[in-house]
């Protein structure tokens, strides 16, 4: 399912036009982005949690050249599905 299909389905369910739905989605995504930027965890019931995790810097070795590289630390988004959601997906 791509974004277009997603918007279509969403507008069908909520009764908004595709254009309205699309702009509402933009607002929602902006809000989610903002929350995650603040390193807040977003919990969706019966689905899972979006949270920001810090990955430590690490040293990797290129196996071909044996060259060692220092990879910088990162903030990544992690999605943890709830147990019930995982179960549903089986």
């Amino acid at each position: 399912m791509n974004n277009k299909e997603f918007i279509a389905e969403l507008s069908r369910r909520t009764g908004y036009t595709a254009k309205e739905t699309s702009s509402l989605m933009t607002v929602l995504v902006a809000e989610i982005t903002e929350q995650l930027e603040d390193e807040n965890a977003i919990t969706i019931q019966n689905m899972g949690t979006f949270e920001v995790k810090k990955k430590q810097e690490r040293v990797v070795v290129n196996p071909a050249t044996q060259q060692r590289m220092l990879v910088p630390p990162k903030l990544i988004i992690n999605f943890r599905p709830t147990a019930s959601f995982k179960e549903k997906m089986q």
């Binding site: 995504v29 040293v59 590289m69 990879v71 990162k74 903030l75 990544i76």
Partner: peptide, 18 residues
């Protein structure tokens, strides 16, 4: 877009060769 926004505090770091 979302990934980069979240990683903004560390965006200026690059992988360096040791």
């Amino acid at each position: 877009v979302l990934r980069d926004a979240v990683n903004k505090p560390f965006a200026q770091f690059e992988t360096v060769v040791l």
